[in-house]
Design a protein around this nucleic acid. Structure first.
Ligand SMILES: [Mn+2]
Ligand SMILES: [Mn+2]
Ligand SMILES: [Zn+2]
Ligand SMILES: [Zn+2]
Lengths: 152, 152
DNA sequence: ATTGAAAATGAAAGTCGTTTTCAATTGGCG
DNA sequence: CGCCAATTGAAAACGACTTTCATTTTCAAT
């Protein structure tokens, strides 16, 4: 890791090493605050902005990418050899991954038709997972007022 | 439109009618502020929160859905009969639409395997459009410091 | 047409994740 | 070592989104 940083012209610091380690030891789809908490378990002196900046650096190095599921919280997903898709459950907010090998061909072709040079894919399926469906947690048609956003 | 609102239990107001009209007269992928500006051209007394609330209502009625391309600005896209995908150019921020009929089968199947009940699809391909590629606007590997985010 | 309850509006304030600022510290090279 | 740019951390700034609340308006029932 030190090597990768140095070859790219970045310095190695204790905080940086710790943040990188924690990021890769945590699961997928980590938010700044989740990583911040984890880091502070091991070194409470590390600042929030340092975690944020190094998460950005991890992305810059191509080791992770931002994931936006629309809840206002940016999460960071370790880059995988092959692109993968996400199931996002509207009820329990779970984020499951699935293989997208079967659709990549068509997507690459679509990009080619538009003379678009793709370098990233975001494939997300929203809905309800089996757990939540069994508990009867599916949304219903609108009936209230426009002010009633509290059901989201 | 008045009818649709009433059958769903919402009241019809001049502001609401105006906002709905403006939304559908504007192009796709409209942000709150873009719509707000358009509305204020015709009635400068309409408030920001009213535009926001009615945009939410439009979504609630199933006439549009939120689009999040990761720049922190929520945009609203008119619901189309068939789902469509987006090409997002990292350089000029253009958002182009493309047909996803050729991938829906595989996605539905993937969802089925996970016992996931899909009710929305988000398919986005990031990269560079032909215009920007001709102008040599493609990103390069990281070389600066972690603080240098100003290139984004 | 009148009326009253519920919904909608608009200005302002609040929320909250993200990003910047800046002074102090530190890493890495000579 | 000694320098200088990179990095750090606390705090403030930012900005889109959301809520609050007093006032106004709609609309269904008189
Ligand atoms: Mn993932
Ligand atoms: Mn669209
Ligand atoms: Zn669920
Ligand atoms: Zn472009």
């Amino acid at each position: 890791m030190k090597e990768l940083l140095r070859t790219k012209g970045f310095k190695s610091t204790p905080q940086r090493e710790l943040i990188f380690d924690c990021f890769f030891s945590l699961g997928k789809h980590v938010s700044v605050d989740e990583l911040y908490q984890k880091v502070r378990e091991l070194d409470p002196s590390v600042g929030h902005s340092t975690v944020w900046r190094n998460l950005k650096l991890i992305c810059l190095l191509g080791l992770a990418e931002e994931v936006n599921i629309g809840d206002g919280i940016t999460r960071y997903d370790r880059t995988t050899p092959k692109p993968h898709g996400h199931f996002f459950c509207r009820s329990c907010k779970k984020l499951l991954e699935f293989d997208v090998g079967s659709v990549m061909g068509a997507l690459v072709e679509a990009a080619h038709e538009f003379e678009f040079e793709p370098d990233g894919y975001k494939i997300e399926i929203q809905g309800y997972c089996s757990d939540c469906r069994q508990d009867g947690r599916t949304n219903d048609v609108a009936t209230g007022s426009a002010n009633d956003e509290r059901k989201a």
